[in-house]
Amino acid sequence: MAERLIFPDAYAAADLLTFSGRASRAGDGAVHLRAARGTLAVAAVPLVRQGLLDPTPTIMGMRTLPVDPELECDLVVEGVTLQTEPGRPSAVLLPETAVEPPLWARADVPRSGWTDGGELDAAALASRGQWGMSAVAHALPIDPGDQMVHTVRGQVWSEPDEDLLGFPRGVAFVALSLGFLGADTERARVRHNGRWTRVSLRRGHVLWRGPAHLGMTDVRPTRAAASR
């Protein structure tokens, strides 16, 4: 794979490192890098579902950056491994090896065909994200185990929130944790494509696919149906 990512300036390179650093502190720490035709799409999932009965929604954050037009790549790396090249602040060195792409990185996110779904206040995203973080902190006991932390986070962030158009509250968490929220006066654009929803802000996009059914389906009276 390519040894480095070349950006038009040091600001774009620093932007990637800021994003990857935030991603490393939330979710699984993996960062998906896809570059083609002068654009780098970088994605991470601060929230990811683990298992059939896990209520935690898998919610992705994505940001696009200008990059060397001749560069093409599609790989997943650990966010903490990215760093600028010494003496060349507009270049980001890649690790010697990539990691096995997790399921979320293999999702076929639509690139076209999105339809308008209205708008959402950035202030509401910030408010509900901060409320959720406080709710998680207050619900956890002293010295909780990893499973307890995941369970509580799943319960808080999976809940539909009326202030967020009924979207799972985790949408606010992803926008907040990845640094997508700037001015409170911004209006986020909402778009839909089948089961996919995208909330777009100037600093990035929040995407998820749902709703997904959890648990087992209702029991049906098969004997009665068979006797007909």
Rank of each mutant, 00 (worst) to 15 (best):
M1S: 08
M1Q: 06
A2K: 03
A2E: 04
A2R: 01
L5K: 09
I6T: 07
F7H: 04
D9T: 00
D9E: 03
A10D: 04
A10H: 03
A12V: 12
A13P: 13
D15G: 10
L17W: 02
T18W: 07
S24E: 01
R25D: 10
A26P: 03
G29N: 07
A35Q: 01
G38R: 12
A41Q: 06
A43T: 15
V48M: 11
R49W: 07
L52D: 14
D54E: 01
T56C: 11
E70C: 02
V77N: 11
Q83H: 15
T84H: 09
A98N: 08
E100N: 06
W104N: 04
A105T: 07
V109M: 11
S112V: 00
W114K: 12
T115P: 06
D116S: 11
G118V: 00
G118F: 08
L120Q: 14
D121P: 02
L125H: 13
A139T: 08
P141G: 02
G145V: 05
G145M: 03
D146R: 02
D146W: 02
Q155K: 06
E159T: 14
P160Q: 10
D161H: 01
D163K: 14
D163M: 14
D163Q: 13
G166C: 07
V171L: 14
V174Y: 14
V174L: 11
A175L: 02
L176D: 04
S177G: 11
F180I: 00
F180T: 00
G182T: 02
G182V: 00
D184L: 09
E186R: 09
R187K: 13
R187P: 05
H192N: 15
G204S: 07
V206S: 04
W208Q: 03
P211K: 12
L214Y: 08
R220Y: 12
